[in-house]
Deep mutational scan, measured.
Amino acid sequence: IDVRFTVNGLDVTVRVRTEEIAERVKELAKNGVDWREIQRIAEELNK
C-alpha cells in the first residue's frame, strides 16, 4: 500500500504492508512528524 502525504511542501510516498500501518503513517504525517522519521518508523513497522 502506498501512502502519500505532504510535509513542509514535500510530497512523500511511503510503501507499507498493511492498512493499519498506513493509518499510523497518516497520523504521524498529520502531527507534523519529520518525513525521515516517518520513513524510519514505517520501515520498522513493515518488518
Rank of each mutant, 00 (worst) to 15 (best):
N8W: 04
D2K: 10
R40N: 07
V16G: 01
N31E: 12
F5I: 15
K30D: 09
I21H: 07
T13I: 15
K26V: 10
N8S: 07
T6E: 09
V12I: 14
L28W: 06
E43G: 06
R15H: 13
E27Q: 14
G9K: 03
R24M: 13
V3Q: 01
R24D: 02
E19R: 13
V7C: 05
R36Y: 12
E20W: 15
V14R: 00
N8E: 09
V25C: 04
N46L: 03
V7E: 05
N8A: 09
D34H: 13
R36L: 14
V12A: 04
T6P: 05
V7M: 09
K26Q: 09
K26M: 14
D11E: 15
N46K: 01
N46M: 03
E23A: 12
R36E: 14
D34G: 10
E23P: 00
V16W: 01
R15I: 08
R24A: 11
R40T: 07
W35V: 14
L45A: 05
V16S: 02
D11T: 15
E19V: 14
V12G: 02
V12N: 02
E19I: 13
V33T: 10
E19T: 11
G32R: 07
L10S: 09
E37L: 10
T18Y: 03
D34P: 14
V7Y: 11
E23G: 08
L28R: 01
R24C: 11
V25R: 00
V33M: 11
R40V: 08
D2Y: 15
I38D: 00
V12F: 15
Q39G: 06
V12H: 12
V16F: 03
T13S: 12
V33C: 06
V7A: 09
R36V: 14
F5L: 15
N8K: 06
V12K: 06
T6F: 09
E27S: 10
T18H: 03
K30H: 10
V16R: 00
D11I: 15
E23V: 11
A42N: 01
A29D: 03
V12P: 00
L10I: 15
K30P: 01
E43Q: 09
Q39M: 15
L28N: 01
E44S: 07
E37P: 01
T13A: 07
T6I: 12
E44V: 08
D2E: 15
I21D: 07
R4K: 14
E27G: 07
R36M: 13
N31R: 13
A29K: 05
V12W: 08
E44I: 10
I41C: 05
K47L: 14
E44G: 05
L45E: 04
K26W: 11
Q39A: 10
L45S: 04
Q39N: 07
L28M: 13
L10Y: 13
E44A: 08
T6V: 13
N8H: 08
R17Y: 13
K47D: 11
G32Q: 07
K30W: 07
A22T: 01
G9C: 05
T6M: 11
R36G: 11
R15M: 10
V14K: 00
V33D: 03
R4W: 12
T13Y: 12
T13E: 06
D2Q: 10
N8T: 04
V14S: 00
T18S: 10
E44P: 01
N8C: 08
I38T: 01
E20I: 08
N8V: 04
D2M: 13
V16C: 10
R17L: 15
N46F: 04
G9I: 01
R36A: 14
E43S: 09
E43M: 11
T6C: 08
T13G: 04
T13N: 07
K26F: 10
V33F: 09
V14Q: 02
I38P: 00
E37A: 08
A29T: 04
I41K: 04
D2R: 09
T6N: 12
L28I: 04
I21L: 05
E37T: 13
T6K: 12
I41P: 00
Q39Y: 13
N8Q: 09
D34S: 14
A42Y: 04
T13R: 05
E27W: 14
E44C: 10
E37Q: 09
W35C: 04
R24F: 11
F5E: 01
E27P: 01
V25L: 15
I1A: 03
A29N: 06
V7G: 04
V16K: 00
F5W: 09
E19K: 14
I1L: 10
A42V: 14
V14E: 00
K30N: 11
T6Q: 12
R4E: 08
N31W: 10
I21M: 05
A42I: 12
R24K: 15
I1R: 06
F5Q: 01
L28S: 02
R4H: 15
V25F: 02
K26T: 08
E44T: 07
E20T: 08
R24G: 02
E37S: 08
V14A: 02
E19S: 13
V14W: 05
E43T: 10
V7Q: 15
T13C: 07
K26A: 08
L45C: 03
V14C: 05
K47A: 15
V14N: 00
A22R: 05
R17C: 06
R4V: 14
E44W: 10
N46E: 04
D11M: 15
A22W: 04
E20A: 14
E20D: 11
R24Q: 11
N46A: 04
N31Y: 08
I41Y: 07
L10D: 07
V25A: 01
G9P: 00
L45T: 02
R24E: 05
L45W: 11
T18A: 03
K47I: 14
D34T: 12
I41A: 05
E20R: 08
E44M: 08
I1N: 03
I38G: 00
L28E: 03
D11P: 11
N31F: 09
E37C: 09
F5M: 11
E37V: 12
I1K: 04
Q39K: 12
F5Y: 04
I38W: 03
V25M: 06
E23T: 12
K30S: 11
G32M: 08
V14M: 12
W35A: 08
A42G: 02
I41G: 01
V33K: 06
G32S: 06
E23M: 12
A22I: 02
I21T: 03
G32P: 02
W35S: 06
E20C: 09
N46D: 06
D11C: 11
A29I: 15
E27V: 10
N8G: 12
T18W: 02
G9S: 04
T13K: 07
E37H: 06
N46V: 02
A22E: 05
Q39E: 09
W35E: 04
K26H: 07
G32W: 04
I38M: 03
K26E: 05
V25P: 00
